[in-house]
Amino acid sequence: MSRNRRILLSLRRNLLQAIPTMFVIVTLGFFLMQLAPGDVADYIAAETGAASEEGIHALRVQFGLNLPVLEQLFAYYDNLAHFSLGISPRYGAPVSDMIMARVPGTLLLMGVAIAVALLLGFAMGTTMALLSRRLPDRLLSLLSLVFYSVPTFWIGLMLIVLFSVHLGLFPSGGARTIGGPSEGWDWFVDRLRYITLPALTLGLNYVAIYARLTRAAVIEAQRHDYVRTAIAKGLTPARVIRRHVLRNALTPIAALTGAKVAGMLGGAIVVETVFSWPGMGRLAYEAILAREYPVLLGILLVSSALVIVANALFDILQSLLDPRVEVS
């Protein structure tokens, strides 16, 4: 089977799975929101500090909350069928605009966090494997375990205290200097300064996983004949590790990274809150608090699409890395 054909098959499978998956996610999300006490009319009424019964009723009628639950759900599907995510009851703005303004922020944060986690994970895992059962292995193992078990928000706050408050190296929050450089090298440096701490916070949690995985894969790969052959050929140890050991260790890591994207989206909520990073996670959190189901469902829809796309990409990546991986 040619490589291209495999990729096409993989894409088709992902696409076929995507539509029912998204349908189920939206429907489940809708019913979960129905289970939560209160609705957005209650929230808006409480937020204004004073309200009348007529006022709340008028809000319910306006947002269709007085309709039977199933009718509300079908109205939402109807909207979707017309490519509309609806209007946010609180903000009075189209949900699609609100989400699209936040997607780049979240994608950037996740992308950099994954890169940080992979790089650190590789480096730590390889070091641990090569020095396996010696002191550095034990220390790094302990360190990665700490990152894994300490709550993300605490790591975030500690990084702020150390790097922003005491050392003054990085800003404590936000995504860029407001009114700062908008292009070129200065812009890049500015964005880099702002993303370092949040991406590190989000990534550190995953470092442990990648480090352990790399360590196991490297130790495993070292036992194989082709590694012994490579050494016998007289290749330098660095080259053996890079070309023969790490490359084979990449396959399980790529698979796992794809699977972790969804979890990372969840972790992003915490990081976005601590670093006041304008992303989707916080929007979702606020939508849940205010019971704004059009906003939440929109986010679920967009983020499930993102996860599906990410998985498709990692599937492809995996089949490129290891031709033996079959696409069913």
Partner: peptide, 22 residues
């Protein structure tokens, strides 16, 4: 000349932003 109003939802992060002079 200008006012920038930033939203920082976390109280510890607000404290840090005040402390760093941001």
């Amino acid at each position: 000349e200008r006012i920038i109003v930033r939203v920082i939802p976390d109280s510890a992060a607000r404290a840090a932003a005040l402390e760093t002079g941001e």
